[in-house]
Computed example of a mutant assay.
Amino acid sequence: MTMASRQRVLVIDDEKINLKVISDILREDVDVILAINGEQGVRKAVELQPDLILLDVLMPNMDGYETMTHLCHDVRTSAIPVIFITALNDSSHEERALLMGACDYIQKPLYTNIVQARVRLHLQLTKQRKMLEELAHIDPLTSLANRRKYEDVISSEWQSAIEHQECLSLLVIDIDNFKHYNDCYGHATGDKVLKQVASVLASQVNPGEGLVARYGGEEFTMLLPRFSQHEATKVAHQCMSEIEHLNLCYHHGGQTGQVTVSVGGATCYPQSSHLLSEFFDRADNKLVQAKNTGKNKILWDVSDKLDVPVK
């Protein structure tokens, strides 16, 4: 298993000997993060986002149940599975832990094979859950983010832009003459065009700089946080140029042409009084105008004064 693919387990226990024992049991399979109390454990869970948490019940100041409450009530940690580890053998404690949302409960003394087996099981379940979550946000044809993922991300970036007074740019992109191309060569070939266009669009955005999504049909969105209108327009021109260079021409039934794209764009500095839906509409309306006035062009919304930050 490579370091990049190793999962991470956070162990929260006030006894150093317990931390060492559990670390020795697990370290060959996972990266182990240690915390000596509940407060430190919550901080590390938020910061490091482990795949699984092993939590001792009996700890001073903040015991395991209180720590679990903090983890459950924070959206950043509420989905991380927790296994309670304790010397308490009263079934009522196990019941309480499970009712609080723990995924498992291991009693001391610890047996290496049991701990390893249960940790592996819950890590595998975590990996499967994350894979399903990722698949639910991926367009199966193009492998881009789908509309659901786009809406989640733009909502988050919108709030971040409001908080930090940063600009946000959005491109809405539509493939020109796609129906003619489909009519000429069939939907299977049309699907290949969608994949080619998607690949070009995805190549224009570095990981972590923005999001490219298939919005529906032959329409795509490109979200560019902290890109000015000038910077986003340069990206749009590059997209148009590279798609044109694909040279996807069609000749059939009197119809002759080439697959290009039209782009509608908008840039703003969001404020709490602005509506996210209106921001999309601004870019989408410009796309419609581009399609209706010759295609293969970029039109940018400059309809209001949101292109400068409000002091």
Rank of each mutant, 00 (worst) to 15 (best):
D152S: 05
I83S: 03
Y111Q: 10
Q159S: 10
E47G: 06
D183V: 08
K44G: 00
I36Y: 02
G210V: 06
I138E: 03
W158S: 03
R226D: 08
C239Q: 03
L58I: 13
V263M: 02
M59P: 05
I173V: 15
L55N: 01
T126G: 08
S203L: 07
Q124T: 12
P140F: 11
S273Y: 07
Q271L: 14
E151L: 09
D63I: 07
V119T: 00
W158P: 01
T126W: 05
R214S: 11
I173L: 08
S262I: 13
I83N: 02
A87D: 08
G101P: 02
G257S: 14
N177F: 15
R118Y: 07
D74R: 12
I33P: 00
T67C: 11
R27E: 15
I12T: 00
S203A: 11
D301F: 15
L287Q: 01
I173R: 01
R214Q: 10
G216L: 12
N206G: 05
P109C: 08
V115D: 00
L110W: 09
V212N: 02
M62D: 05
K291T: 14
Y111I: 14
P207K: 14
A198E: 10
K127F: 05
P270C: 11
E28I: 11
A35S: 12
Q271T: 13
E134G: 02
E244H: 12
I53V: 15
Q229G: 08
M68T: 02
R147P: 02
E157P: 04
A188I: 14
H122R: 00
T126E: 14
N37Y: 09
H122T: 01
T67H: 08
E242Q: 10
T293R: 13
S5R: 04
L121N: 12
V263R: 01
C268W: 01
I25N: 01
P109T: 10
V75P: 00
V153W: 04
G64Y: 05
G38P: 02
K311I: 08
V30H: 00
V193F: 09
I53P: 01
A102M: 04
I114K: 07
G257V: 14
G208N: 10
L168F: 03
F280W: 07
R8G: 00
V42K: 01
N182I: 12
E219V: 12
G186Q: 10
E28Y: 14
D152P: 00
S273Q: 15
Q229L: 06
G253K: 10
L246F: 07
K305M: 11
K179H: 15
E15K: 08
Q271K: 12
V200R: 04
E94D: 03
Y250A: 10
L141C: 12
C249E: 14
E163P: 00
L246Q: 04
Q258S: 13
V57M: 07
L168A: 02
